[in-house]
Computed example of a mutant assay.
Amino acid sequence: MTMNNESGCLAATGSGSSLDAAVALFHSLSDGTRLSIVRRLAEGEARVADLIGELGLAQSTVSAHVACLRDCGLVDGRPEGRQVFYSLARPELMDLLASAETLLAATGNAVALCPNYGTDTGDSRE
């Protein structure tokens, strides 16, 4: 079973299987903002203020997504004075993203045409 935690992310709970944990992992990466944050943190540490400037998003939005990634164990925070520097907690995450890019290339990005989750927003009823 999965439940929403305080940051709005799904977290595996109860006697769930490893499939539940995988669903929660992929859900945590399914948001474009969180994926952008992960990709940026792959380049090195960043503060929320850095991410705000680089992503052009509101502080509350960035903070909520960083909290989600932190709650999922994908991002760590290193306090330094009054600032927190965030980094990827698991370098294996970059291997997962590289594998996803390989899969997307192999399928010709066909998933973009998926009627449920695709990125094609054109109206085919014209």
Rank of each mutant, 00 (worst) to 15 (best):
D76P: 03
L104R: 15
I52Q: 14
G122F: 05
E54C: 01
V23N: 00
V38T: 02
R78D: 09
T61M: 00
L88V: 02
A100V: 12
A12P: 01
E6M: 09
A67G: 14
D31P: 03
S87C: 11
L69V: 11
G122R: 15
R34P: 06
R47D: 11
L104E: 10
L113T: 05
V66L: 14
G122C: 11
T33H: 09
A89N: 15
A89Q: 13
E43D: 09
R70A: 13
L55Q: 12
V23M: 03
E6Y: 06
L19D: 01
D95L: 15
F26Y: 15
A106C: 10
D95P: 13
V75M: 10
S28L: 05
S36I: 10
S18F: 05
L104A: 12
R47I: 08
S124F: 07
N116V: 09
T33N: 07
L74Y: 00
G118S: 00
M94N: 12
R39T: 10
L97D: 08
S99C: 13
N109C: 02
E80P: 03
N4P: 01
T33V: 15
N5R: 15
G122I: 09
D120A: 11
A12W: 01
L29M: 12
D123C: 05
D50E: 14
R34F: 08
V111Y: 05
Y117C: 06
S18N: 06
T2Q: 02
D31E: 14
T121Q: 10
N5L: 11
L96W: 15
A98Y: 08
L10E: 12
E45A: 09
G44D: 04
L35F: 00
R40W: 03
S36F: 08
M3E: 03
L97V: 02
N4S: 11
A11P: 00
E45V: 01
E45Q: 07
E45L: 00
G73P: 07
A98V: 15
D123L: 04
S63M: 03
L93I: 15
G81A: 11
G73I: 05
R125G: 09
E54W: 02
V23A: 00
V84N: 04
D76W: 08
H27R: 15
T121N: 07
N4D: 04
N5K: 13
A42C: 11
L29C: 01
T13C: 07
T107V: 11
A89M: 13
M94Q: 14
N109K: 10
R78V: 12
T121W: 03
A58W: 00
A67Q: 14
G32L: 08
T107E: 06
L74M: 04
S36V: 12
S18G: 02
E6Q: 13
A21P: 01
A42Y: 07
L93A: 11
T119Y: 03
T107C: 02
T33Q: 04
R39M: 05
A112P: 00
Q83K: 07
A106P: 00
G108W: 12
